[in-house]
Design a protein around this nucleic acid. Sequence first.
DNA 1: GTCTATACCGTGATAGAC
DNA 2: GTCTATCACGGTATAGAC
Lengths: 221, 221
Amino acid sequence: MSSPREAPRRETATVILDVAERLFAEHGFDGVSLRDITGEAGVALNLVTYHFKTKDNLLLAVFERRAGIIGTLRLDALAAVYDPAAGKVASVEELVRAFLVPLLELVAGDVPGWRSYARLVALVAHGGVGVSHPQVPLLYDDVARKYLEAFAAALPGADRDALDLAYYFLVGAMLTTYAQGGRLTALTAGRLNSDDFSRIHDHLVPFVSAGFRALGAPRSK
Amino acid sequence: MSSPREAPRRETATVILDVAERLFAEHGFDGVSLRDITGEAGVALNLVTYHFKTKDNLLLAVFERRAGIIGTLRLDALAAVYDPAAGKVASVEELVRAFLVPLLELVAGDVPGWRSYARLVALVAHGGVGVSHPQVPLLYDDVARKYLEAFAAALPGADRDALDLAYYFLVGAMLTTYAQGGRLTALTAGRLNSDDFSRIHDHLVPFVSAGFRALGAPRSK
DNA sequence: GTCTATACCGTGATAGAC
DNA sequence: GTCTATCACGGTATAGAC
């Protein structure tokens, strides 16, 4: 804790977090050296070791800073449409929207850091960082459990495996959206850009919602 | 080309490719050193440099070896259900199945190397390797174009952007399936395993097919 | 053309002075 | 809390043996 009369610069740890978040998102975890980070942050190399112990742990700290925020927003959005105690049961599409909209608004609204965070989640979730950091998924388990309960209420005919997989596909489609490696731009010959999150979202919601309903009432063959 | 009377060992380059494919899939690109690969392969360190120039290029070679095979299988499966010259137009579900089944059979059938390849594709596709290797997606563009044409015929009401995005989500859901970081096992408390590709597939096909149809005939709101 | 030996520079991590 | 010095290991380049 710095004394209040010091120069008005942010704390060293926060500066490191900000730079690391941006650089990891841009170049991947292994594409960024601690020297890159400390160089841009204007601090000595091993202040990252002092504040965060290891490079892996620095990445985890980047996630922890935002995972709680987005998790709370998602649970708030869920509570607005699903409240079993009050007999309020949401539709599938309302649930999909409640899950996806909070992050979309932060990213599409260019709230500082969130675009980097979204891309970084997509990167790490698919195991790109080493064999993946096992602590990261744990940050999202609470949200997953509560949404699955709500989906089960919305689709009383679906079995658990089907619902779990549908949620898995929902998260996968969202991650694919934010991974934005330029693949979408190439695939559409430039008509769609990976940055058009709002337009992607307009298609993503009905796509995933229809998928959920299909698993809720399985088709023959 | 070795002379036919030599000792019956595989070519050095092939041994390196096999080991690299497996280790990259297990530990990620940056989680494996050239010394790990050459050590297991029983060859000298810089034979990888000699045969493949760089580590990046070695990864590309791993992809090239299998991308052509799976691409041909997918196009064959497409031709079996979609032949506009003969007036044969496939259903959405037939197309989804044609796209997904070839890789599933290779992986679920434990054909050597394909499980590693599938996981590796998922890893690289989401940019986990550095900022991703831009040459890799090009290996799949031809298949994408031909399937999109078939989907357009199956869903005459859909606009191009919706179809492109649906294909994008299809690939994303497939990649999520094969990324198998153990996330699914955790999410389902062990009831579903990331290795149950056949069971995942049984849900994936109707999920994605319903999504396609939803984009083909957009819902209100 | 195929392979071995060696060296170079950048990396993450650590120890200890201030 | 911060900095300097140092370490072992990473990918890569080269020179030369066969």
